[in-house]
Design a binder for these strands. Structure first.
Lengths: 210, 210
DNA sequence: TCCGCCAGGTTGACAGCGTCTACTGAATGC
DNA sequence: GCATTCAGTAGACGCTGTCAACCTGGCGGA
């Protein structure tokens, strides 16, 4: 027997929306369905949120928060490259275990950021975790004369990680004959190639961990 | 004065849907709006498509087709690595000039593939262009014992390219202070890091083209 | 020539959606 | 004790995709 939820309706709405999106994706989010499930009229949520987008922004912000928390909670290492590897693993882990939440954050047409400063702040924090970590790691110099190498390398690493899980979780991947083992292998190889790209691993010296 | 479109309604519907998606994204696709714009009743398209998803699948298939065509039309090189580089450029080029179409193919919840074999075939062709090209290039051996290295390396390259333009075009990127120059720089650096990852470029020898 | 079929168009209806407006009742402040 | 404000309800509007019934012009066969 479920105990009745005594939290303010505002919190209940966000929780319920979060649950719906995690289970069925953002397309399935319906204000009226949520209101019905919470046992209130279809207009009640409007007393707490100006529009559907405002609820969505709240869920997105919350998703970024738990994503950042997951990254911070990775195993730590004194060795910068190893630590970066842990972060990469944590990134992939989150994306593969929370695919719809991940898709919501990175693959969706989000509400206008100007209207939702909280969402903006939470999303920026996720990127700065990666960027800050990179600052203290001696990556191989590419001598391409860019003035903010850490920023571009952060983008590169992010892009690779994102691309990997985004593709593996995408509908397009379903069009390819990929087993779960294939996916795991792809992630492993990607992590090794990533190490090579950053100058942390030679082709010759690699038959195990990065 | 626009000449009246004399093609079968079926073609007109697909063209119009394609146009809407390229201009305003898949969320803006409305059957009734299309019918109105074509000057027919809202039910007319149903004589040619079983549902909205069937129209969508047609547009997706067409998008994959033009994507593959764009990849095939890249400048060619006898040098395998250079040719791969051209392909990467062509990939980024398409994604940056057709952002909504790209997003449709790779970042959208697509119609069920089992119901749309044509869409499936067109999407597989895009991947096989990359995969086939890789087969004849001597990439650095990672000695990780995977039995289909080309497949996993194709996934890696695809993931990196996809991640790059997916992120640069995503709404999340708008939350970061990125100028157009930054984006171009990120793409350049990514292409160089990609070369390094594949063993085609040393850190020391790189201050120009890959 | 007439009949029937049928592909391709029409109109009308339905449920679901987000959102606007108006109303109600309870709590709060002066 | 009255006014204001907050939280929730109820109904309507226009939009969506989809189902059903109806109409119509052209074609094939008798």
């Amino acid at each position: 027997m479920a105990k009745p939820d005594t939290r303010p309706l505002k919190d209940q709405v966000v929780s319920e929306a979060f649950k719906v999106i995690a289970e069925a994706g953002v397309e399935a989010l319906s204000l009226r369905a949520i209101a019905k499930r919470l046992g209130v009229s279809h207009q009640a949520p409007y007393k707490h949120f100006a529009s559907r987008d405002h609820i969505l922004a709240e869920v997105v912000a919350r998703s970024f928060e738990s994503f950042a928390t997951h990254l911070e909670a990775r195993p730590r290492s004194e060795n910068g490259f190893e630590d970066l590897g842990f972060m990469g693993r944590a990134y992939l882990e989150f994306a593969m275990t929370h695919p719809l939440q991940y898709r919501l954050m990175f693959n969706t047409a989000l509400p206008d950021i100007d209207d939702h400063p909280k969402m903006l702040a939470k999303s920026q924090r996720s990127f700065s975790i990666l960027h800050d970590r990179l600052q203290t790691i001696p990556l191989s110099d590419l001598r391409d004369g860019l003035d903010q190498p850490a920023k571009h390398d952060a983008m590169f690493i992010w892009a690779t990680l994102h691309g990997c899980c985004s593709i593996l979780n995408s509908d397009v991947a379903k069009t390819l004959p990929l087993t779960d083992q294939d996916k795991a292998d792809t992630m492993d190889r990607m992590m090794r190639r990533l190490s090579m790209a950053l100058g942390a691993l030679d082709a010759e010296s690699s038959n195990g961990k990065a």
